[in-house]
Write a protein that binds this DNA or RNA. Structure first.
Lengths: 210, 210
DNA sequence: TAGATTGTTAATCGATTAACAATC
DNA sequence: TAGATTGTTAATCGATTAACAATC
């Protein structure tokens, strides 16, 4: 039985990964936890604690080999795998996600985009045709999908979530306001943009008080 | 001197706000911390602790008045104010946010969109014309801007951040990979979409192990 | 070897949960 | 009034930081 890693740790992993990537870009081949902690604004202790949840990647007296650590974290994050992905909801955010991030390079393959709006169905977005949401179940019967991106209104999301879970989709990247307790075997990552904006507005208000 | 509220608490406030909003939509006028905790998957203790950071909004033996609490949290989050907002980087995400937030109709007013791409400059996005980024400084001299949304590549962001802070923008909603330690009086809220996706991929990998 | 820095255990700090007196 | 539920203090739990022996 493995020990459960806390989400706080997991959410720092992508940051480590990004920093290590930029170190590599700058030709830096080794780094100590102390040095990395200064750059990232963390403590060296925390970095060593975090990494040692997954293994002993460093070397006493030397520090960490940047490239080695980079690829270790890559593996920990599951970025060495490829994922079939669909987008449900082809509105602004859905289309932006389809276009903006170069998923392909990182192992994310878009295999379908769905919407219920007849004006959108059939449109071609950068080589991907928007399908009728009514064909979703049938599509899932024939295509293995690892991750579904939910970029549709919260009230529509509830029904869709049922369908995709039923059809075996195990990862949900949720941009809608709908949140559910996922059944065992299904994982969900929520991105609540309005929550984030509200947090900013709170911080702004606090700052201006001082 | 006020006591500092932890970010963990602050990040729950928008969730409370959303839940209370939906309770109001359903005509529910009062709620106990126990009842709310069940719906939200938290403990009643936590809800009471969280709220009591800001005041005593409930009543013994009764619970909380939904509408009152809703408006209290609204005020705590600074949502009773209006904010002038600009978007810097009119790519997919920038355009999506322009449409998305406008649609939300809270107190966020878009007053400008900027880009450096000549193909985008001059284009009209839902009534807002994309301006040349070179005119940004001048624009900020003449218009009060509370929040700048950064939806441009990380390498371009560094220079832009300097300019907007210098010109008195105090809130930054950052979608770029660039992260900085903000000077006093300036607040920044980061949305790292790729980090979020990496977290999902980690969770997926973990789930499939079991 | 001597110096540097890890991996890891112990101490501290902060956040969550439990308990209960106050009171509507 | 009696029952319900808050506000708040105390206890617990977990995460971060400090310390240091191991070792490259």
């Amino acid at each position: 039985m493995e020990k459960e890693i806390s989400t706080a740790v997991i959410r720092r992993l992508p940051r480590y990964y990004r920093y290590l990537g930029s170190l590599m870009d700058n030709g830096i081949t080794r780094i100590s936890s102390r040095d990395l902690s200064r750059r990232m604004g963390l403590t060296a202790s925390q970095i060593r604690q975090d990494l040692n949840n997954f293994g002993a990647f460093g070397q006493q007296g030397y520090g960490y080999n940047v490239e080695k650590l980079y690829y270790e974290i890559r593996k920990i994050l599951g970025l060495d795998k490829t994922y079939n992905m669909i987008i449900i909801g082809a509105g602004n955010i859905g289309q932006a996600l389809l276009n903006y991030i170069n998923y392909q390079r990182r192992g994310y393959n878009f295999v379908g985009v769905f919407d219920k709006n007849p004006k959108l169905i059939g449109l071609n977005i950068r080589g991907t045709v928007i399908r009728d949401i009514d064909t979703l179940e049938n599509f899932l019967d024939n295509t293995k999908v690892d991750i579904a991106v939910l970029t549709l209104p919260g009230n529509d999301a509830e029904e869709v979530i049922k369908i995709i879970i039923d059809k075996g989709v195990r990862g949900i990247w949720n941009f809608s306001h709908m949140t559910i307790k996922t059944p065992p075997g299904v994982v969900m990552e929520n991105v609540h943009l309005t929550d984030s904006l509200m947090t900013l507005s709170y911080k702004l208000k606090e700052e201006s008080k001082e």
